[in-house]
Structure formats: C-alpha cells, structure tokens
Amino acid sequence: MRHIRPRRRSATRFVGQVAAWGVIVGVTASIAAAVAAPRLAGATPYAVLSGSMTPTYGVGALVVTRDVDPATLGVGDVVTYQLRSGEPQTATHRVVAVRQQLDGEREFITQGDANAAADPLPVRPVQIRGEVWYSVPYLGYAHTWLDPGQRGLAITVVAALLFGYAAVMLAGAARDRVRVRRAIV
C-alpha cells in the first residue's frame, strides 16, 4: 500500500476559489433581488435615473415597489408614481404632505430627498404605481441597459454559466476522489 501525502493547496488557488464563490453568490443574490423576489411578490422593479432621492437611493439603484392602497399612505412613505396619469414615465419620491380635495379624494405632495422644494404637481391616487419595498444599489444600470427580452436572455445565460461552473467543480471533485481511491488500493 502506497502512502499518499495530501496535496497542499496553493494560496493562489484558494484565493481564486474564494473569489469564484464570491462572484457566484453575488450574481445569485443580484438575480434573486432583481428578478425572483419581485416576480414572486407581484412587485415591480424600477431604475433610479436621477439624483433626486440621493442619498437614500442613488443614481443607478434598482427600487422594487409593491402595490399599496393609497388610503394607507402617509407622510414619509416613498412611492413610485406616474408623472402624468396614464403615461409610462415615473418618479420615485417621498410623500411630504397629504391633502384632501373638496370632492373627498386624497392627493399627495411629493419631494425628492435631494430637492429643495416639493414637486410642482400633486399626485393623485390613480397615479401611484406602488410603495418602495427595497432597493439594490447599482443594479438599476443593468435594468436600463437591457430591454425585457435581453434581461430574460441575460438571466438564462448567467444561470447556465453558474450551473456549468457547478458541474465542472463536481466533476473535479469526483475525479480527485477516484484518484485517491486508486492510489490507496
């Protein structure tokens, strides 16, 4: 029977593996935050395109909003709303005042955290797309660079690469295990 000394891992290989796992965990967490969690919860991701909410949400952040009953909103809540009712352009700002109109409908006065003054037009409940649930810094850049079809393709490619990496790691571990068994016998 031959005695085999266990191979020592080089520091470079160890650092490489730690870095690879860091990338895998980071990519997986990003996908979960940007795609899986919003889809499962019925929420909607939006990219922050201006600095009006700095430092709370910086340019390039991804804010995820979920549906909210406008009757439950109050001062301090951060909402995403249509700039003009029925149009796709949105903004994400903080509610700084709530007013009651003569017909009983509520309206919200909003303001960006970095802005010196409130927004010029009040926001009607029909314009509210949701209340901010959470945000992920810098992930909004990827959201704006890719259209919805490209996002789906990018997620598929990243998932395939992660599974491929896992398969290579498992195959390498199995190969090493076989070598050790052969050497012992």
Rank of each mutant, 00 (worst) to 15 (best):
H3K: 15
H3T: 15
I4N: 09
R5Y: 02
P6M: 08
R7H: 12
R7N: 12
R9C: 03
T12D: 03
V18F: 11
A20L: 14
V23W: 12
A29R: 11
S30I: 10
I31S: 05
A32R: 08
A33M: 15
A34T: 05
V35H: 10
R39Q: 14
R39D: 13
L40E: 12
A41C: 08
A41W: 11
T44P: 02
T44I: 09
A47W: 04
S50C: 00
S50P: 01
S50Y: 00
G51S: 07
S52M: 01
T56A: 11
T56M: 07
Y57P: 01
G58V: 06
V59W: 00
G60Q: 01
G60V: 00
V64D: 03
R66D: 08
D67A: 09
D69H: 06
T72Q: 12
L73Q: 04
G74V: 00
D77L: 01
T80P: 01
Y81R: 07
Q82D: 05
Q82G: 03
S85F: 00
G86Q: 02
P88H: 13
Q89M: 06
T90W: 01
H93T: 05
V95G: 05
V95M: 07
V98C: 01
L102I: 14
L102F: 13
D103N: 12
D103R: 10
D103F: 08
G104A: 10
G104I: 09
R106A: 12
R106Q: 13
F108Q: 03
Q111G: 04
Q111E: 11
G112S: 09
G112C: 08
A114K: 07
A116S: 15
A116K: 15
A117W: 12
A117E: 14
A118H: 02
D119G: 05
P120E: 10
P120Q: 09
P120W: 07
P125L: 14
P125T: 14
Q127C: 04
G130A: 05
E131S: 10
E131P: 02
W133E: 05
Y134C: 05
V136E: 09
V136P: 02
Y138R: 14
Y141K: 04
Y141N: 08
A142K: 07
A142D: 09
H143P: 06
T144R: 15
T144I: 15
W145K: 09
T156K: 09
V158Q: 01
V158N: 00
A159R: 00
A160F: 04
A160T: 06
L161K: 09
G164S: 07
A166P: 01
L170N: 03
L170C: 06
A171W: 15
D176K: 00
A183R: 04
A183T: 01
V185D: 08
